[in-house]
Amino acid sequence: MKGKITAQSISLFEKKGFTETSIQDIVDSLGVTKGTFYYYFSSKEELLMDIHLGYIDGLLYTQNHILNDTSKSFKEKLSANVYMLITNITTQGAAAKIFFREMNNLSPEHLKIIEQKRDQFRLNIEGLIRAGMENGELRADLNAPIITMGILGITNWSYQWFNPDGNCTDEEVAEIFVEMILKGIQDN
């Protein structure tokens, strides 16, 4: 039931927003009582935190597998990270929207936990960029923090516009992004 409450809440939060969705809305949509809700969550904010943790912990778990794969080159690891973020839209698009849009509704204590995990994700990408610079796969004069923010900006914003059923697959979008990142858009 906890999973059903979470899934239904993600759907309602995506449509109505966190503040406009009441616990009553959630339980009514599932045909359960508030007691059922409170059995699993002490508050709506705890539910929101659970959604945030599920999203960011899933990304960090997958990212760590990518980064620790010694058989992959820098480019392959970068491509895998970009692909993971774009593919995640297909599987976690609503949760991603809630993650980015509703973060300000977390308590300061919960927000700090999420920000630390989000920062770790960013620092992992930055470390990958630095490793590419050090091993000669990337120019040594790059600003790794800015490049990292650019990569995260283009991938994280994709949840607003990417349609998994559209003209390009998630893999094609990821390939376009990686090509753009690594080679730029200048005609040589």
Rank of each mutant, 00 (worst) to 15 (best):
Q160T: 13
S11K: 01
V82M: 06
K72S: 09
D170P: 00
T62M: 07
R139F: 10
Y159A: 05
G3P: 00
G166W: 01
Y38L: 13
I113N: 11
E126Y: 07
F99R: 01
E172P: 12
D28N: 11
G153L: 05
K117Q: 14
A95S: 14
T36Y: 02
G153K: 04
I86G: 04
F74T: 07
H110R: 10
T33H: 13
N143A: 13
K77M: 11
N81E: 11
Q8P: 00
S73L: 12
I114E: 07
A7M: 02
K77W: 10
G93L: 05
L106C: 07
D57P: 09
Q8K: 14
A7C: 02
F121S: 15
G153H: 07
F37A: 05
F177N: 04
G17M: 02
F121N: 12
H52M: 10
N124M: 12
Q63S: 14
Q63T: 10
E46C: 03
K77Q: 11
G184M: 05
E76C: 14
N104Y: 07
K97H: 09
G166V: 06
E126K: 07
Y55W: 04
D141V: 11
D28W: 00
D170Q: 05
S79L: 12
L152C: 14
Q116G: 09
W161N: 13
R118M: 07
F13H: 02
L47F: 06
L12Y: 02
G166D: 07
T155F: 07
V173N: 01
H65Q: 11
T148Y: 03
D187F: 02
T87H: 12
E45S: 13
V82S: 00
Y55T: 11
K16W: 04
G136P: 09
E45R: 10
K72D: 04
K75A: 09
S79D: 11
L30E: 15
E179H: 13
N163H: 07
E172D: 14
Y39K: 14
D119T: 03
G184P: 07
I86T: 04
I151D: 00
F13T: 00
Y159R: 12
